[in-house]
Design a protein around this nucleic acid. Structure first.
Lengths: 228, 228
DNA sequence: CGTTCTGTTGAATACCTTCAATTCGCGTGG
DNA sequence: CCACGCGAATTGAAGGTATTCAACAGAACG
């Protein structure tokens, strides 16, 4: 399982750990594969450890009683998920589902907690990760409560631009999923896209969006301007 | 400063720490008093440590560009706040303001991080606190995105009932502030209160609310029933 | 080439907010 | 002790943004 050790030592959560600890981790790790659309855990379910995504993409989300979905996070390879339950209560606070063919590494709770109490590096890494999540949620709450959908989408566009060409944004998720991430529904997002196109702020071809008027988007994102 | 040592050893963040560490903490701690309405830190401001509330009440909140407020947390004595900035970035992600005459204990970042790397207990306590916050935010996001205001308020009522008399709920904050905590405005909350009264679900006298029909509130909270 | 999932568009509606006007509650000072 | 004044809370009418529902177009996939 050399590959697993390699992967684990590259996970930011485990950065700086001595080889010996990495070894230990790889011995308690459990690999698991999921098909696109397959659930990994459910809101309220009993949690006995944490996951690190190895391959693929995973969404962590909440569901309303009528079935509407709010995506909390989209997990990329190397990121942990389901960590909250390890340190507080032992119930997953949301659903997790594979968005595409995915592989996860699972670390049972007890062994993981044991390691954390022995290694201050691991503890600090975990604290950093939780803090980042908290900061992200702070912003999500701000967006949902204090901003309108066009503002949220404009921010998303501006922060998600291709590092090579600032004008290009390639959506890495389906538009419907983006709507759920922004706290709205596909219809609303579609209408906003339409308006932005007709105002010549952007062009859209499938998942490729080109920013024509960055200035205007910044105004919208900051709330200085509204979309009609 | 015996009083300070006493206080620190009773803070849940510091539970289980050896007396020696408590001593150290009390030596690096900085006390500070705030008047009602006085700001403690601001969103985006540089952060060089974390606070623990000693006395009074503090709100942590975000502001929109038009001045609307969303309360993220209401901090009670013994609870830490401003912790996120210590472990990720060093910028406060929200505003904090004293809701009444308050006293805080401030721990400078460097010294605090030093202690945490030495004491796995402290690290685990901090992890537990951050996880709890994360879980709380998960719910806040769910509420804001997937529920309507009456649902949120009904949940708030049901979870905030007096442990002695389940039917009694005493609001410990002004109604306007409750509105901001629920992600709405005073007018809307007032209308909802009015409707619930006229439906005989509750009675209201100032900050004292009596639950007449818990069943109905539970239906509303879970979304099985709407408020007209 | 058809089936299915995703995305788009229109009309009607619902919920919440905004704005403005009052009323209520309470602490302060006369 | 009462009157005043200020902030908090309530209420009404009007408006706006987003959602719902339904129908359709388009892309992806086998």
């Amino acid at each position: 399982m050399a590959k697993l050790v390699d992967f684990i030592s590259n996970v930011s959560l485990f950065k700086g750990l001595p080889e010996e600890q990495i070894e230990k981790l790889s011995r308690i790790a459990v690999l698991h594969g999921y098909k696109r659309g397959e659930g990994i855990f459910s809101d309220g379910e009993n949690a006995d450890g944490l996951y690190v995504l190895f391959l693929g993409r995973v969404k962590v989300f909440k569901l309303s009683s009528e079935g509407k979905e709010q995506i909390l996070h989209i997990i990329e390879p190397g990121e942990p998920f389901g960590e909250v339950a390890v340190f507080s209560g032992n119930i997953f606070p949301a659903h997790a589902e594979a968005m595409e063919e995915s592989k996860t590494v699972f670390f049972p709770r007890g062994a993981f907690v044991g390691l954390i109490t022995q290694d201050p590096y691991l503890a600090m890494n975990m604290l950093a990760i939780l803090s980042r999540r908290l900061k992200y949620f702070t912003r999500l709450v701000e967006d949902l409560s204090l901003k309108e959908v066009p503002q949220r989408f404009a921010s998303y566009l501006l922060s998600g631009s291709d590092p090579r060409d600032k004008r290009q944004v390639h959506l890495n998720i389906a538009k419907g999923q983006l709507a759920s991430l922004l706290g709205t529904i596909p219809e609303t997002l579609s209408r906003i896209l339409g308006k932005m196109v007709s105002e010549d702020f952007i062009t859209v071809q499938g998942r490729k969006i080109t920013v024509l008027d960055r200035e205007a988007l910044e105004c919208i994102a900051s709330g200085r301007k509204t979309l009609l």
